[in-house]
Simulated assay, not measured.
Amino acid sequence: MNECCAVVDLRQYTLHPGHRDALIEVFDTYLVEGQEQTGMHIVGQFRDLDDPDRFVWIRGFRDLPARADALNAFYYGPVWRAHAAAANETMIDSDNALLLKPVRLGPGYPALDAPRADDATSSMIGGAVYHRAAEDDGFVEFFTDQVVPVLAATGAEPVAVFESLVAENNFPQLPLRDEVVLTWFARFADDTAYDEHRRRLADSPAWQGRVLPELVCRSAKPVQELRLRPTGGSQFR
């Protein structure tokens, strides 16, 4: 297990049209360092390739008490005060957020001291959010035993798998979605590698005949597929 973190926020922001690059500039220049100074781990920041006005990011915390301490320190501290207006004016909605815990973090998941290259990349982070019926639905076991082998065989070995951390929101100033999910992320060298994975998945008898039908039955609503391009300052790339 990666030394950090036992608690993770997955946040997806809906932005005013054409404002995503402005938010990324503020975020990568000021807000990553500002948050990490309070004890958070900013794992990855991404452009959503299927929505030009969505910004997706992942941050981690050592545990729940550390989450409350870090968020209070940052959002009532000098860095956020200095840049809140510039960030907030880009956003329509910032409440699409999930509180998660790791199921598995592979060796490709960024460590705390992973470099931030600060340059463009053609790599893609692909994955999905599965919406579950309940915390005790056996979904994690199904995913581990049935889904992961097919993903790996088709070129999408998950680097990180998370499930919902069912706990009270200890920083209610930032709302969280009240639902149970499992989400996974895999790294692809480029768009072509991702497209090849999707082609192989569509041609997989195991996926089409067994895994996908059960996945649909086990899901409370349609899956959210993710195709994410890391920003220049993202560790996860």
Rank of each mutant, 00 (worst) to 15 (best):
P172N: 09
R20P: 02
L10A: 07
G209Y: 09
D21F: 05
G232Q: 11
R200T: 09
Q37Y: 02
D53P: 06
Y76G: 14
P110K: 05
N72Q: 15
L201E: 07
F46P: 02
F236T: 02
L49C: 09
C217D: 12
A66S: 15
P230M: 09
D93K: 13
Y130F: 14
P230D: 08
I92P: 01
R187E: 09
R67I: 05
A128I: 05
R229H: 11
V147W: 01
L165N: 05
A189Q: 08
V223M: 15
A134E: 09
I125S: 02
C217H: 12
D69M: 11
L31G: 01
H19M: 13
R199Q: 14
W80D: 03
P149D: 11
V103M: 10
L226K: 06
I125G: 03
R81L: 12
R11Y: 04
I125H: 00
G39W: 06
A153I: 04
V166D: 13
L105H: 08
A84G: 08
T183M: 09
Q12V: 12
G44R: 00
I125W: 02
D9A: 05
I58R: 01
I92D: 15
E135H: 11
G77Q: 10
C5I: 03
L165M: 07
G138H: 06
G126W: 00
G209D: 14
D191L: 14
A156N: 03
G126D: 01
G34W: 00
M91P: 01
V159L: 05
N2V: 12
M91L: 15
D190V: 09
G106N: 05
H19D: 06
H131R: 11
R237M: 07
F27I: 03
A220C: 06
R199L: 14
D119T: 14
R67T: 03
H16P: 01
V148L: 10
A22T: 08
R177P: 00
H83Q: 07
L112C: 09
D136K: 10
D195V: 13
N72I: 06
D118M: 15
A134M: 06
V79L: 04
P230N: 08
P78W: 02
E135M: 09
A152C: 04
V161D: 01
Y75M: 14
R187S: 12
R104P: 00
A84F: 06
V166C: 08
P149G: 12
I58L: 13
K221P: 01
Y76T: 15
V129L: 14
R198M: 13
